[in-house]
Amino acid sequence: MRIGWLESEIGKILEVELTEAEEAIAISDTHLGLKYKGRELSKSRELSEFLEKILGDNNVKLIILLGDIFDFWSAKVGDIIRSAYDPVKVLVGSDKTIVYVAGNHDRIVSWIKLESSRGKGDIYTVPDFFILNVDGRKYLLLHGHQLDALFTRFKGLWKIQSYVYILSESLFSLPGPSEWMLAALSAGSLAFLLASITADNVLQEFILFLVSILLLSPLLVMLWRKLQDRIWYGLLEELNMKLSKSRLRGKSLRHLSVSKPLNRFLRSLESIPQIGRIDGVVLGHTHVPELLVEEGRVYANTGSWIENGHNSTCTFVRITSHMITLGKWDNGRETKIHEASLPGS
Score class of each variant (00 low, 15 high):
K53T: 06
L66N: 15
A75H: 00
L51P: 12
V60R: 10
D68W: 10
N59R: 13
A75S: 15
S74P: 04
N58V: 12
G67I: 02
G38N: 03
I64W: 12
W73D: 11
I64G: 09
E49S: 06
S48F: 06
S74D: 15
K76G: 07
N58G: 09
N59G: 08
I54V: 15
S42R: 06
V60I: 15
E52K: 15
N58D: 15
E40L: 00
L65K: 04
D68G: 07
S74V: 13
N58R: 03
I69L: 12
E52V: 04
F70A: 09
R39E: 14
L65G: 07
S42W: 09
K53D: 03
L65M: 01
V60F: 03
I54S: 10
W73M: 10
I63F: 07
I69G: 01
S42T: 07
F70K: 11
A75W: 03
W73G: 04
L51C: 10
K61E: 14
D57I: 05
A75R: 02
S48D: 05
D68N: 11
F72M: 14
I64S: 02
G56E: 14
K61F: 07
I63Q: 10
D57N: 13
I69Q: 11
K53L: 13
I64T: 13
G56Q: 12
E52Y: 07
D57L: 04
R39A: 04
K43V: 02
A75I: 12
E49F: 05
K76V: 01
L66S: 05
L51H: 11
G67A: 05
G78H: 03
W73A: 14
F70D: 09
D57P: 02
L51S: 12
A75M: 00
L62P: 13
D57Y: 08
F72R: 00
N59I: 07
G56S: 06
G78R: 02
V60T: 00
S74R: 14
I54C: 06
F70R: 09
V77F: 15
G56M: 10
G56W: 06
G78C: 02
I63Y: 02
L41T: 03
L51D: 04
L51I: 12
V77Y: 08
L47N: 08
S44R: 06
G38E: 05
E52P: 09
K61W: 06
N58Q: 15
I64P: 03
D68V: 09
D57W: 10
R45F: 06
D71K: 08
V60C: 03
A75P: 06
S48C: 07
L41N: 03
L66Y: 01
K76L: 03
A75L: 08
R39H: 07
R39N: 04
L66P: 04
E46H: 14
L55T: 00
